[in-house]
Amino acid sequence: MSQATSQELLEKSTLELAQMLADKCAIAPNDWHRLKSNRKAQANQHITAALVYLQTSQTEEALAHLQQAVGWLDRSISAPPCPTHGHKH
């Protein structure tokens, strides 16, 4: 990491850094099928979302996302069905 980039990161708030990380770890809609069963990707998405909620003092939402992350990691939850399949339009 360059010195300029490091300095830019140091100038960001914890919330800004958490949001950047959450944005980076979010599963994009066009990647959903590919990553729907990827436990690491799913847990990453929930853990980083929990960090954002924690920074904004939304502890119940943070806890819910942490519980989802644990579920992915301990294999107690699995991928939901595709949101675009099975719906009648």
Results as ranks from 00 to 15, higher is better:
Gly71Gln: 09
Thr84Phe: 08
Asn38Phe: 03
His65Ala: 08
Glu11Leu: 12
Gln68Glu: 15
Ser76Ala: 06
Leu21Ser: 06
Ser57Glu: 13
Ser76Cys: 02
Ser6His: 09
Arg39Met: 11
Ala69Ser: 04
Ala62Lys: 07
Asn38His: 14
Thr59Ile: 04
Asp23Thr: 07
Ala49Tyr: 06
His33Pro: 01
Lys12Tyr: 00
Leu17Met: 05
Ala18Trp: 00
Leu66Asp: 02
Gln55Glu: 15
Leu63Gln: 13
Val70Thr: 14
Gln45Gly: 01
Gln7Val: 06
Glu16Lys: 02
His65Met: 06
Leu51Asn: 10
Arg75Asn: 08
Ile77Met: 07
Met1Cys: 07
Leu9Tyr: 03
Leu51Lys: 11
Pro29Asn: 13
Ala62Asp: 04
Arg39His: 09
Leu73Cys: 04
Cys25Lys: 14
Glu61Ser: 13
Trp32Leu: 13
Tyr53Cys: 08
His33Met: 14
Ala41Asn: 02
Lys24Ala: 08
Leu51Val: 07
Gln7Ser: 09
Ile77Gly: 01
Leu54Ile: 00
Asn30Asp: 15
His46Lys: 15
Ala49Cys: 03
Lys12Trp: 02
His85Arg: 13
Ala62His: 02
Tyr53Thr: 08
Ile27Ser: 02
Leu15Gln: 12
Pro29Ile: 15
Cys25Asp: 13
His33Lys: 15
Cys82Thr: 03
Leu66Cys: 06
Met1Leu: 11
Ser37Leu: 02
Trp32Thr: 05
Thr56Phe: 00
Leu17Lys: 11
Ala64Glu: 10
Glu60Thr: 12
Ile47Asp: 02
Leu15His: 05
Pro80Arg: 14
Gln58Gly: 04
Ala26Tyr: 10
Gln67Tyr: 08
Ile27Ala: 04
Leu21Met: 11
Gln3Thr: 12
Asp74Gln: 10
Pro83Asp: 03
Glu11His: 07
Ala69Tyr: 01
Leu51Gln: 14
Gln68Met: 15
Glu11Tyr: 01
Ala18Arg: 03
Ser2Trp: 00
Asp74Glu: 12
Lys36Phe: 03
Ile77Trp: 00
Leu35Tyr: 06
Ala64Leu: 10
Ala18Gly: 00
Ser6Ala: 09
Ser37Arg: 10
Lys88Arg: 14
Ala49Trp: 09
Gln45Ser: 12
Leu15Thr: 12
Pro29Glu: 14
Ala79Lys: 04
